[in-house]
């Protein structure tokens, strides 16, 4: 299976699901070509609405459509859609409107466009809202299943997707389960909990670490909210050391969520790898290297954490 961006997998999945479920509608804010909803809009022009560059209105219209019985997907860049936090907070979360919020272009891996286009704090914002689950799939297979799940899920939900292609990481028979984290590689010395864009690099880092005599367990935490508490506490108990890896701010993202959980339930040393401060323009590979999210950076971070 070739590498594919999760936004592209989303576009394909929603096109297919749209044929089966007429309740599915899409609301865009002039980024169809980027959020990959053009095919849906072409196939179902009566169920796709482009409201122009007006994300708050897009979210509110989505809420209204949901209240009228539709299953709306409101789509934009992660930073733009979650940036309209107050509208999500009241029109979607508090109203309990069945809106599926899709944020693409997550993380610094969007590259050249620079910080203002990067979703780096979206997980932190939405983690604070009472009833919006956060799902960040790591490859094509998982994305397609997560989109199908989003349709079934009764209530709002946030899908965090990437611009860049993602190498396959899930086994061929993988079944996405809401609220479940999946061990992709066993290991007893340290647990690497990763999500989304840099997950593949975390697996590569584990290979490198093996060469250094460190057996790292790698866990795909695609469901960031709710967390798979049992699995994560289990990994922490087994290994005694936890490293989180994410293309998001280390403040309030996966690392924050895992730290909060372990501090209360099973205090364990945690190292958060991710973004600190603003992002910047550059080539995605170079950015991951600079921010320590390439395989070498992750391996280095783990070794330093383990004092090796």
């Amino acid at each position: 299976m070739p590498a594919k961006a999760s936004r592209a997998a989303f576009g394909e999945a929603i096109l297919e699901l749209g044929a089966q479920d007429p309740r599915i509608v899409i609301v865009d804010a002039d980024l169809r070509k980027s959020t990959m909803t053009s095919a849906f809009a072409k196939a179902y022009p009566g169920r796709a609405f482009n409201v122009g560059i007006a994300e708050s209105n897009m979210i509110g219209i989505g809420a209204g459509l949901a209240l009228a019985g539709k299953i709306p997907f409101v789509c934009s860049f992660a930073c733009f859609v979650v940036g309209r936090f107050e509208t999500i907070r009241v029109s979607v979360a508090y109203t309990r409107a069945n809106v599926k919020i899709v944020g693409t272009h997550a993380g610094i891996a969007i590259g050249e466009d620079g910080y203002s286009q990067m979703g780096l704090e979206d997980i932190a914002c939405l983690r604070a809202l009472p009833n919006i689950p956060i799902i960040q799939p790591a490859d094509e297979i998982e994305t397609k299943q997560a989109v199908a799940y989003a349709v079934e899920h009764a209530g709002p939900l946030y899908l965090r997707l990437t611009r860049q292609n993602l190498e396959p990481v899930s086994p061929p028979a993988y079944r996405f389960q809401f609220g479940k984290a999946v061990v992709l590689r066993p290991g007893g010395d340290v647990a690497i909990l990763a999500s989304g864009g840099p997950l593949f690099n975390a697996l590569k880092a584990a290979e490198k670490l093996e060469g250094e005599g460190v057996r790292a367990e790698v866990v795909n935490v695609s469901c960031i909210k709710p967390l798979d508490e049992e699995r994560i506490v289990g990994s922490a108990t087994r290994t005694g050391r936890v490293v989180t890896v994410e293309d998001h701010s280390i403040w309030g993202g996966l690392g924050g969520a895992v730290s909060e959980l372990l501090a209360e339930v099973h205090p364990t040393p945690v190292k958060r790898l991710g973004i600190q401060g603003f992002g910047e323009s550059g080539d995605p590979k170079g950015l991951y290297a600079k921010h320590g999210l390439d395989p070498e950076g992750i391996a280095r971070g783990v070794m330093k954490f383990l004092n090796r």
Binding site: I59, I61, G62, G64, L65, A66, L67, A68
Partner: peptide
Amino acid sequence: GQGLSMALGMALG
């Protein structure tokens, strides 16, 4: 400021 957008969505649905 949020009600009109929701009303639009409802009317459309």
